[in-house]
Amino acid sequence: MTTPRLSVKDLHVQFPVRSGHRKQTLRAVDGVSVDLKPSEILGIVGESGCGKSTLARVIAGLTEPAHGSVELDGRPLPPRRTVQEQRAIQMVFQDPGASLNPRLTVGAVLTELLHRHGIVDRARERERAEDLLRRVGLPARAYDARPRQLSGGQRQRVGIARALAVEPRLIVADEAVAALDVSVQAAILNLFADLRVSLALSMVFISHDLSAVQAICDRVAVMYLGKIVEVGSVDELFSAPGHPYTRALLAASPSLEETAAVAPPLTGEPPSPLRVPNGCRFHPRCPLAVEKCHIAEPQWEMQGEHRTACHRAWEVDDVTAAGARHPRGIALNP
């Protein structure tokens, strides 16, 4: 078995929250373990506030974890990374308007990184930066442009070029297409797909958009309230989702085709990460919840490479039935 490109092991991230005199701990990421093979694209999906972005920031070395480790090619990265370690994992941000320094030209942003890591000498820096721009589908003249002269999609391409500039071993794209128009989203997704072929790119693709994940990812991890509840290949997970939360996400995602599993849409908000429910953290919203879901945290149920943390994994038929019986489901679909 090959060494995984990225291996996240039992990662916890906590933020102190002070409301009045009460000090609480917000468990943004609460024990996440996941692997990524070289030149694989792993999607991470989940609702807002489930800890996706925090996980991305920890992987990219921008936030320090409370506990657990991030390993790159089998070597654990320390919480405070060296310049070389920092360089190895690059992030693409959600809002291309906020992720580029408005005072610097595109060329200045790129060459600054090329210098820092001694990638090319000054004589060839422009040539190299223009190569990068062409690689992400921008004309070479974008070198002299400032961010405000570019469209959202073009800015995001610059953001990708910036991530590629330092020749990283892994890219973390945090909602990299969420802020873009739909047609531009497709173009950026195609760009990722192309780069993956031409550069053997390894990528963590974080999104709440299941169709985007389906389009470019090899495997998907579903996150709920700081924990991964299901991991599997895109095909397996989308055709035979094991976790009721995954089924609910699939059902809620607008699609032209019929989804394999029909489940009632979820109601209510996810619980606050300040007060994580006992047992299975999904049980308050779960149509399938039984007694032990309130008490015991579920262990992984495996079907080959496809794993689900649910006491009633893959009980697909029951879901539909239970959904119909579920009071909330009835209220929504009388």
Binding site: R57, A60, G61, L62, V83, Q84, Q86, R87, I89, Q90, M91, F93, Q94, D95, A98, S99, L100, N101, P102, R103, L104, E112, L113, R116, H117, G159, R162, A165, V166
Partner: peptide
């Protein structure tokens, strides 16, 4: 707190450089 400061940190730039070139001009 802007993303481009995170991007600069993520790119491995030194703190003085981030302050002088990315924070102060803005």
């Amino acid at each position: 707190n802007m993303d481009y400061i995170d991007a600069a940190r993520g790119g491995g730039l030194s703190t003085p450089r981030i302050i002088v070139r990315h924070i102060l001009p803005n």
